[in-house]
Design a protein around this nucleic acid. Structure first.
Lengths: 220, 220, 220, 220
DNA sequence: TATGAATGAGGTTTCATTCAT
DNA sequence: AATGAATGAAACCTCATTCAT
């Protein structure tokens, strides 16, 4: 009953696996363009597949959305991990990771929904945990190096990064897209850099609140 | 067909005007609770009015949404205007206005939609202009006072404020809500305070890009 | 959440109430003709109403089916009650009631479905109880009069009557229908008349088994 | 287009014939469990075969259903034939056959559908004829022996037997099933035994009406 | 030949909008 | 002028049937 199990049972036939990949890619694009309320039919149309094919691989729309989200988050996790492995614990390194994450999310914007959602499936909960853990590492060592203000946590960072406006489609519909988030990131980074002067109110968000945030803002 | 003409023609009767007010209030609350996809029927139910009454005053759902947006923005404009009139041009004054605006928007969060929207109606365009103008004043004089970094514009500020996570409904559904945005604001403010160290990329957003942002993020 | 509440809340407008009646009548006819798997669209078509109207009054198809079933059963209950009030406790009276009930059900045949159904709604459970109770009275007094074999219960009767083949639509589609059940009833009645010679196996069905029967045979 | 030709053309290879047998067995079980609306995919799953294999042997679902029906009826015919060959023309013999047929049908219950069906295929028509003929023999000789009431025909018997409630799946889903039909059969047999007292109305059903009955009740 | 992935028509359900009361 | 019932297009989802592997 878990809404997130397309690669269940035996391995898929080669062409079927390809279809799953394509469905996820197209769905990501469609949701980015039209939002979560885009119809499955639209995903089918753009991918050149029948709707039935999508439903064969994802039991319902929610599952598809979740899988797209998982996919996007996985890329972020990889990014942070890589940075942790390769970079020294400097401000520059922190900056680079943050910018990269934002760029990732920006161009792969996923659905914005609102409206009561169920508990997220286990896979989603898991990548989210992995992302938070990786960020905790990053935050901890950058703080240890004295470059990042002491009163923020990885949970704050996740929240802020997910609030950066995504890259917008060009009004003329085709052509390159407009990234209004870059400047926000700059300001945010300056705000995050030690030393700080504003005192941050209330305790840093809890995991429960992070989950609540995603559930409310993205329906995930 | 213009989607923004409820108080058109002659002035409304007293009770009719009251209805309009109430519809807007309830709609704001409903959209905040359930998001843009909340049904008109829900607005009717909560306001104790018939759906027909809502449609008498607003030609369609989009118009209703727009008017809620206008209402919320008007309150922001008033706030900024008041600050400009009463406060000296200090960092503290700037801070106070920003926090107030965020709190306004936070508790009156309006719909998040995505998906191609039409050109916004003239009223919406107009408050938006008024808000931007008021903020330009605020920004200019705070910068003149040397308290705000020089490389941001009112357009940047609007964008950043609209990217602060809104107050979330409590997971236990009733009771007080959770405000995760307060801490973000703190960081942002530190980032906005002069002197700055990050260099902001690309030119500040244009009015056209701001419109594009609202159209994409809120369908407005 | 109970799937059987169309007359909920305040009383309906006159025309709406009429529509509800008509929907039930038409649905009964449609299900009799085409079976439970008939589409709601078909009910809408035959009643000249939009599908939305049906869904306004019945939250889902199951609820509609249940209400048709309740309606049919109610008529049976009334019939038995009337007989109990007016008739003496003779074999002839018993016979008359049985024949009448069969004729009722025959011409108002309701859906035949199979397939796991949920617990029936409270209204359905209630008429069923009322029907069984009424039949218990009838059976008891006919047995006391020595006319009905002693080893059957009202539950046996319900089962048998509901197994009588319903009146069939004429193959030529229009014209009068064919009632193959009449003769079955004759034989059954002879079998029910005291004295008996076959010994009936196993205990009479329990209420639980009766419910199971309806759930399995009619999805109710 | 004839919907009943799986063993058409040359004789099947040994393994193919095995597949056909297995499909029929599984389908019978599935239809008994889930009703006619069970999906072909379910039959495929339970039989461990691909859906394509089923469609190779049966042109469509209707054909599969028909073949299951033919299979069940064939067993009934055999049963009656055996009884005719081995048993004397007594009431006890008649009783035994009837009970056996009911038990057969009960445990091998086939689909209950409703809804316009096409003319049954030739094979189905043929077993039905054979069953009716066999029953005619049985009825005739039991009547000649004076044990069975004179005013019923084999067609009546078929109808009555098919109106006995089938064995129901246990509500607790697994475990033994509940047979509510046994007691009905007892009553019916008493009703069929000579001498009778009820006068049966209308002429006994015609072959055409029997066919109509099956078409309507089982879609066959 | 057997498999199970793909298809798409059709069914259920929702909801913005219209309109009779 | 207000009400809320009716409408019907469009969304989600299922499954009989086809077809590439």
């Amino acid at each position: 009953m878990s809404p997130s199990t397309p690669p269940a049972g035996r391995p898929l036939r080669a062409d079927a696996r390809q279809n799953v990949e394509q469905i996820l890619d197209v769905a990501q694009e469609v949701f980015a363009d039209l939002g979560y309320q885009a119809s499955i039919a639209e995903v089918a149309r753009r991918s050149g597949l029948g709707m039935g094919t999508i439903y064969r691989h994802f039991p319902n729309k929610t599952a598809l959305v979740e899988h797209v989200a998982v996919k996007v988050m996985r890329e972020s996790v990889d990014e942070v991990r890589r940075a942790l492995a390769e970079q020294p614990a400097t401000w520059a390194a922190f900056t680079r990771v943050v910018r990269h994450m934002v760029r990732l999310r920006s161009s792969q914007l996923f659905p914005v929904s609102r409206g009561r959602a169920k508990e997220p499936g286990p896979e989603l909960a898991e990548v989210r945990t992995r992302l938070l853990t990786a960020l905790e590492d990053l935050v901890a060592r950058t703080q240890r190096a004295g470059a990042l203000r002491q009163d923020v946590t990885a949970y704050d960072i996740v929240l802020m990064l997910n609030s950066i406006p995504p890259r917008l489609p060009d009004p003329d519909d085709a052509g390159p897209t407009v990234d209004l988030g870059d400047r926000c990131v700059g300001v945010l980074l300056d705000g995050l850099r030690a030393p700080s002067s504003e005192t941050l109110p209330r305790p840093a968000p809890s995991r429960r609140e992070i989950d609540q945030f995603f559930r409310t803002m993205y329906g995930l």
